[in-house]
Simulated assay, not measured.
Amino acid sequence: MKQNQLLIVVICVLSFTNFNGQTLSKNNSFDFSIGYNVGALKNLEIAPVSRYDYNSAIYKFKYQRITKKEKIFEVQLDYLQSEVENNVSSLLNFEYTKIGISVASLKKIYNKNRLLIHVGLESYSDLSLYDINPNNQFVFDQTLGLSSRFSYQINQKQHLFSKLTLPTLLLRITNSNANVYSLNRFQSILWKIGYSYSFSEQLSGQLSYDFNYDRLQISNAFRELQYQVNLGINYKF
């Protein structure tokens, strides 16, 4: 049911942009992808078990605009929902929902020999919901960091791309407290590498691999690791 609703949204967006495409330059694009996520979680503030594992589908929506000076502005929404499991007791398993919104602004610094490089800033808002009875828990993270994007044009139809983000500052709000952490306690990396093939001037397909890692060095230790393989479409308008 969720997949059908998501497909309806994508079809409506594509129909709308195609109707208006005659009056717009193709500096805008919309990405939709479905992936498979493998994750490991440790959050001693929420749950006593040192490690939980989860596998789930992950949905990604992204809007990107490229300006006349080739500056990139992009907004991305990620959504996953899964049951997290442990090897101690099934009674300690719970439902886990994670919603993330990232906003990036990247400036072109290099464009030569088919290689294009952008650097800039990226912020990431992340809401994690833990369905643990009797009181559900939540964690809200707001990060700010440095981001770089690399794109290599193989030929007219194919290109490789990679994006690396290193968050440097974290604001964390939970049911019980709120704190700000810098690099001495907070380490994180978000890395994507992918391949794109253009079917036409407007439509292309993408295959990507994502690696995400977060570590918080506090008394109630936090770790989260995610591997993702994503398959998606890109529509330019």
Rank of each mutant, 00 (worst) to 15 (best):
9 V>R: 02
76 Q>K: 05
224 E>D: 09
40 A>W: 12
228 Q>W: 00
82 S>P: 00
237 F>D: 04
100 G>Y: 01
9 V>T: 07
46 I>S: 05
6 L>W: 06
190 L>P: 00
48 P>E: 12
11 I>N: 07
42 K>H: 08
41 L>F: 11
126 D>K: 11
212 N>K: 15
68 K>L: 03
202 Q>I: 08
152 Y>D: 03
54 Y>F: 15
133 N>V: 11
184 N>C: 07
199 F>P: 03
1 M>W: 01
237 F>Q: 05
101 I>L: 14
90 S>A: 07
176 S>F: 04
124 Y>D: 12
39 G>R: 10
16 F>V: 14
203 L>M: 12
152 Y>P: 01
229 V>G: 05
53 D>H: 11
194 G>V: 08
217 Q>E: 12
126 D>Y: 07
18 N>L: 02
225 L>W: 08
132 I>D: 10
171 L>E: 08
231 L>D: 06
24 L>P: 01
205 G>L: 15
155 N>D: 14
12 C>Q: 07
173 I>T: 11
130 Y>D: 09
47 A>P: 09
86 N>V: 10
164 L>A: 02
31 D>A: 04
3 Q>A: 09
18 N>V: 00
97 T>W: 00
146 L>P: 03
80 L>A: 00
156 Q>M: 00
226 Q>N: 11
236 K>M: 04
49 V>I: 15
182 S>I: 09
75 V>I: 15
1 M>C: 01
41 L>D: 02
104 A>H: 06
223 R>F: 11
213 Y>L: 11
105 S>G: 13
143 T>D: 03
166 L>C: 02
108 K>Y: 04
214 D>Q: 14
163 K>G: 02
6 L>V: 06
67 T>F: 07
195 Y>W: 15
54 Y>L: 14
232 G>L: 05
163 K>L: 06
81 Q>P: 00
27 N>F: 02
113 N>W: 12
54 Y>H: 15
15 S>F: 13
236 K>C: 06
162 S>R: 05
119 V>D: 03
57 A>S: 14
144 L>S: 07
157 K>M: 00
22 Q>K: 13
151 S>C: 03
136 N>L: 03
113 N>Q: 12
147 S>P: 00
70 E>Y: 11
207 L>A: 12
206 Q>P: 10
2 K>L: 01
137 Q>H: 14
104 A>K: 14
128 S>Q: 15
101 I>P: 02
115 L>R: 09
49 V>H: 12
16 F>M: 11
17 T>L: 07
210 D>S: 13
233 I>R: 03
41 L>T: 03
138 F>I: 13
110 Y>M: 08
80 L>K: 04
164 L>W: 00
120 G>C: 13
217 Q>F: 09
147 S>T: 01
166 L>W: 02
71 K>T: 13
120 G>K: 14
182 S>H: 10
46 I>A: 08
82 S>A: 09
228 Q>L: 05
200 S>Q: 10
107 K>P: 01
22 Q>A: 09
